[in-house]
């Protein structure tokens, strides 16, 4: 019985807080959804978006699944429809899966855009395209081939074997490999489950299993420092190179020590910033199809191609420039 009294008390507490809350202000409400809330990549997107929200004077919501989960994304969109936000910006975990929920939001008068990963074109008005998967795949493969002198063995560490974006990048890496670098050989692809620790163990095993290994390419943010730590501990700095898709902050130490040669990434902070600007412009009907350029605050004029707003080429962070980035 105590439990039930407790429950009631708790629920009334909720009631009270709901009543006591300030009435919704008239500011524009922008809802931003990452693929996974805990991922450093999206945390830095959030930082950029918050800066934009301050500049534009809008309210920003930022919520998503704790770990990537297509079903959860749908549910959060439903919540935002309930709240009646003005514009939703989603990084879609699953292209088709989220389309139904997004169309429902559009029917409810909410503007929808996507960033980072697109949904079906009819379920959103614009896509903030940070760099195509093709661009990522090619940049990584080109960097890898350059570091290995065009020949040698390399291995890939991914997040999970089932993660959509990882598969997409890997496909383009393999395509570039087949097309341009006959001397390079991809010997193994290992999952890290997005765990830094597991990536470290996998990299250790890879180096002893493939003694001729020249390079490890890590495709998810936590795996890059994991692989670098393994190379450092194996005493193979310089002999086995590490590159990957990662954030500068987590990798700065290894890049500056020369363990990791470079990390490739678009500027995620700018991606969040640009996304927020596009979202607000769409909500205020300031950005319409047919535009070829879009002024995005401190970023200046960004290129628009059809219904894609382009952030530009992926950026290569190296020893020389990585110290300048705080995300």
């Amino acid at each position: 019985m105590k439990l039930f009294r407790g429950c009631l008390a708790l629920l009334f507490l909720g009631l009270l807080s709901a009543v006591a809350a300030p009435a919704a202000d008239a500011r524009l409400m922008v809802a931003l959804m990452p693929k996974a809330k805990g991922n450093a990549y999206f945390i830095s997107c959030k930082a950029g978006a918050e800066r934009a929200a301050r500049e534009l004077g809008v309210e920003l919501l930022f919520d998503g699944p704790a770990e990537t989960n297509a079903a959860k994304q749908n549910e959060i969109v439903e919540n935002w429809i309930t709240l009646g936000v003005d514009v939703i910006a989603v990084a879609a975990e699953n292209r088709e899966g989220i389309a139904t929920a997004l169309r429902k939001a559009q029917r409810a008068g909410i503007k929808v855009i996507t960033y980072d990963a697109d949904t079906l074109p009819d379920a959103r008005s614009f896509f903030v395209n940070q760099a195509t998967p093709e661009g990522i795949g090619q940049t990584l493969m080109d960097e890898a081939a350059r570091l290995c002198g065009g020949n040698g063995e390399f291995a890939i560490i991914t997040a999970t074997l089932t993660a959509g974006n990882q598969r997409e990048w890997q496909k383009h890496i393999e395509a570039r490999l087949a097309a341009k670098y006959p001397g390079m050989k991809l010997v193994a692809v290992r999952p890290s489950d997005d765990f830094k620790d597991r990536a470290q163990s996998e990299a250790t095993a890879l180096m002893s299993a493939y003694p001729k290994l020249k390079l490890i390419m890590a495709l998810c943010t936590p795996a890059v420092p994991g692989a670098a730590e393994a190379v450092k501990q194996a005493g193979k700095v310089g002999q086995v190179k590490v590159i990957g898709l990662g954030l500068p902050k987590e990798n700065r130490r290894y890049v500056q020590e020369g363990v990791t040669d470079c990390v490739v990434l678009w500027n995620t902070d700018q991606l969040g910033y640009l996304t927020a600007y596009v979202a607000v412009a769409v909500a205020r009907d300031q950005l319409k199809l047919g535009a070829t350029s879009f002024p995005a605050g401190t970023l200046g004029a960004m290129r628009v191609e059809g219904d894609n707003v382009l952030l530009g080429r992926p950026f290569v962070f190296t020893k020389e420039n990585i110290g300048q980035f705080e995300f």
Binding site: G38, F195, K196, D197, Q200, P222, P225, G226, E229, E250
Partner: peptide, 9 residues
């Protein structure tokens, strides 16, 4: 064993 702690560990 490493210079960073991941909360997911």
């Amino acid at each position: 064993q490493s210079p960073q702690v991941q909360p997911l560990a």
